[in-house]
Design a protein around this nucleic acid. Structure first.
Length: 384
DNA sequence: ATTACCGGGGTCTGCCATGTAT
DNA sequence: ATACATGGCAGACCCCGGTAAT
């Protein structure tokens, strides 16, 4: 049964989280593991200037040796450079052991210098927690390289544990958590309180709209849109209000939209969503569509509002110039899912064969490359 | 055998401002 | 006073294929 491995992962995850809790927390910031004297940054030299403002020179040297972009790092977190004790060497050893390259480690420190203030104990514990969700070190290394801040920004491992528990309690499964930590790792560095606020906010929305199962609603929205938890409730709220008002949705319509494909667009920036809506509406109106057409289009394909106004405009031009009508697009908006380039190429291919969109419809534009090619070959064979 | 319907998958950080602890 | 911790922001789609319906 396909579900079994997933369940097992989930159980073991939960168990180890509980086990770890009993270890208690190890104080961080205590760079205990400065091994070779040369790379240890404890300063013994006397500084002429007030010690609070001068930089730790052995640290600077260490970072230079390691290939860190010191200028960048200093610009980002100057305070780190004035610390008497740091753990750059311990961090490097730790990450090397996990499979990160020296280059990558240098880049990580350049982009998030505070990483070198974390103790080995802290790092080990945090890594273990992440490993509850990822099955290999390599996956974590990838994320760290991509987004050092997500891993290092908080020193609060307890909060990370609580977040994992909390997310599981919402009904998110191990696959959801994996995807979430991959694509929106910041979620796990949020305070538990912040995540909770978003969940409660979503539940409240559900209740306000007459929904019967607020927990399920929140879970659905979050698993459909993994970015929700790294947005502000204000942003999501404004978007929901705007959608409701511009589309003149009643409670149940809005509820359905939000827990359906509309979940994808609630985290867009407020202005972007507004702008996209306005330009879409303007464009459609110019082609003789009424308010109801716009509403139906967006309900059936909310992702249309995800497409930037310029991109969308080009895409529409491309279709219209290819002899396709607005009415056809309204009837099959998913063709807009494909890139303008892709659409243009297909239109060209089909035109060569004298494909009649009026007769055959435009569904062929909304198909995978494989299927499209297969169809194209068949058509070509028939024409011959 | 084709087409329609539908849902899923990848992927997304790096900076700034402010509050808080020391 | 300073560094740390944390919240918030802008940024801006595309593609594939299983399976039901015809």
């Amino acid at each position: 049964m396909a579900a079994v491995p997933g369940v097992r992962v989930l159980l073991s995850l939960h168990r180890s989280v509980i086990v770890q809790r009993s270890f208690g927390l190890v104080p961080v910031q205590l760079a205990s593991t400065c091994l070779p004297r040369r790379l240890c940054s404890a300063t013994t030299r006397n500084k002429p200037k007030p010690p609070a403002v001068s930089e730790n020179e052995s640290l600077l040297e260490n970072l230079n040796v390691m290939g860190v972009d010191v200028k960048m790092a200093r610009r980002r977190q100057p305070g780190v450079f004035r610390k008497a004790f740091t753990n750059e060497h311990g961090l490097a050893e730790f990450l090397l052991e996990k499979g990160a390259s020296r280059r990558s480690i240098a880049s990580i420190i350049s982009r998030y210098p505070r990483a070198i203030t974390r103790s080995i104990d802290h790092l080990e514990q945090r890594w273990k927690l992440w490993r509850n969700i990822f099955s290999t070190d390599a996956e974590i290394v990838t994320i760290l390289h991509r987004s050092p801040e997500s891993f290092f920004r908080t020193s609060d491992n307890e909060s990370l544990e609580k977040n994992i528990d909390f997310l599981i309690s919402l009904g998110l499964n191990s696959k959801d958590l994996h995807r979430m930590l991959t694509t929106a790792p910041r979620t796990f560095s949020n305070s538990l309180e912040l995540n909770r606020q978003m969940v409660e906010f979503l539940e409240d929305i559900c209740v306000e709209l007459g929904g019967k199962d607020p927990e399920q609603f929140a879970k659905t929205v979050i698993s459909r849109n993994l970015y929700v938890l790294i947005r502000s409730t204000k942003r999501v709220k404004v978007n929901i209000e705007n959608l409701r008002s511009v589309l003149k949705l009643n409670d149940s319509e809005l509820l359905a939209l939000l827990q359906g494909n509309g979940a994808d667009i609630v985290d867009l920036s407020n202005e972007y969503l507004k702008k996209n809506f306005n330009s879409l509406q303007q464009r459609l109106t110019a082609h003789g569509c009424n308010e109801d057409d716009v509403k139906k289009l967006i309900i059936s394909y909310p992702n249309i509002l995800y497409i930037g106004s310029e991109t969308l405009s080009n895409k529409l031009d491309c279709l219209l110039e290819g002899g396709i009508t607005i009415q056809q697009i309204l009837g099959k908006p998913k063709v807009l899912d494909y890139s303008t380039q892709n659409i243009a190429g297909r239109l060209k291919d089909l035109q060569k064969l004298g494909y009649d969109f009026q007769k055959n419809g435009i569904a062929l534009l909304d198909s995978s490359q494989k299927r499209f090619i297969a169809k194209l070959n068949k058509l070509a064979a028939e024409t011959r």
